[in-house]
Simulated assay, not measured.
Amino acid sequence: MIVSVVAGNPKPASRTLTAASLLASTLTGKEPDHVVDVVDLGAGLLGWGDSAVAAAVETVAGSDLVVFASPTFKATYTGLLKLFLDQFSTSDGLQDVTAIPLMLGAGPAHYMAPDLLLKPVLVELGATVPAAGLYVVDKLYDDTEAFQPWVDRWGSIVLASANATVSAGDR
Rank of each mutant, 00 (worst) to 15 (best):
W48I: 12
L104K: 06
F84P: 00
M112E: 09
T59E: 13
K82E: 12
D92E: 14
L83P: 01
A54P: 00
T72M: 03
A113M: 15
L85A: 06
V67Q: 03
S91G: 01
L102M: 13
G62Y: 10
V60W: 00
S63P: 03
D86Y: 02
A109Y: 11
F84N: 01
F84R: 05
V53C: 04
A75R: 12
D64M: 08
G49A: 07
A106P: 02
D50C: 07
G79L: 08
W48G: 08
A54F: 02
L85S: 02
F68V: 07
L46G: 11
T98C: 04
G107W: 00
L46F: 12
S89P: 05
K74P: 00
S89F: 08
T72H: 01
S70K: 03
L80H: 09
P114F: 06
L46C: 02
V53F: 07
P71I: 11
V60E: 03
V66G: 04
G93P: 01
G42H: 08
L85F: 08
L102T: 11
A106H: 10
L45R: 03
M112Y: 12
S91L: 12
A69W: 01
G62S: 13
P101G: 06
G107P: 01
L65C: 00
P71K: 08
F84E: 05
V60T: 09
A99K: 09
M112Q: 13
Q87A: 13
G107H: 11
G79K: 09
P101Y: 00
G93V: 08
L104H: 07
G62Q: 10
G107I: 03
T72R: 03
G47Y: 04
F84Y: 11
P114V: 09
A55Q: 15
F68N: 06
D86N: 09
F73D: 12
F84H: 01
D96S: 11
A54V: 07
F84C: 07
G105I: 03
A69K: 01
S63L: 08
V60L: 04
A55R: 15
A109I: 01
A69N: 09
D92Q: 14
L83M: 13
H110N: 15
A52D: 14
P71R: 10
F68S: 06
V97H: 02
V97R: 00
S70I: 09
V57C: 00
T98M: 04
A55S: 15
G62K: 13
F88C: 03
L94S: 04
V67F: 03
A99W: 05
A75W: 14
T78G: 01
G107M: 05
G107S: 15
S51I: 13
A106F: 06
K82R: 13
V57F: 04
A106I: 09
K74A: 14
A52S: 12
Y111F: 14
I100Q: 06
H110A: 15
T78P: 00
G105H: 02
A54M: 11
F88V: 02
P108Q: 14
D64E: 15
G107Y: 06
Q87K: 07
G79F: 07
A99F: 00
H110T: 13
L81Q: 07
W48F: 13
L94T: 04
S91C: 06
G107N: 15
